[in-house]
Amino acid sequence: MPKQRIAPILWLLFSAGGIVAALMIPVLLALFGVLFPLELVAPPDHAHLLAVIRHPLTRLVLFGTCVLALFHWAHRFKYTLYDGLQLKGLHTAINTFAYGGALLGSAVAAYLLLLLPA
């Protein structure tokens, strides 16, 4: 696809990923990354969490969060390397790494959340 046609799609994914990341990540990371390990809040038992993850709506929401967040990362990280480290000369390698990584991560998310029977 020509660059002029794919650029707006990538911007849209960046923007959608930005809002999804802002809404979903802080609460999940605060719980599982900080509050449960520090034993400030008791973690849910396995049976409850398994039931939550088995629900199709949870799986769809988590899959969407993963894909959009990854494309948000790819877009922003690309410009971090371009501007912050002035690596614009390596744009082919950077694009391959960023969008290839986002696609790979999306595939893993699809396997775990959509294909794997719970």
Binding site: L29, T65, G101
Partner: peptide, 23 residues
């Protein structure tokens, strides 16, 4: 703000590890 995207990507990895563990 730009660097925050790296931690967004880290969270996706972390979340997928959690999902795999629960399953």
């Amino acid at each position: 703000r730009e660097v925050s995207s790296v931690f967004v990507a880290w969270f996706v990895v972390f979340l997928l590890l959690l999902v795999r563990a629960v399953l």
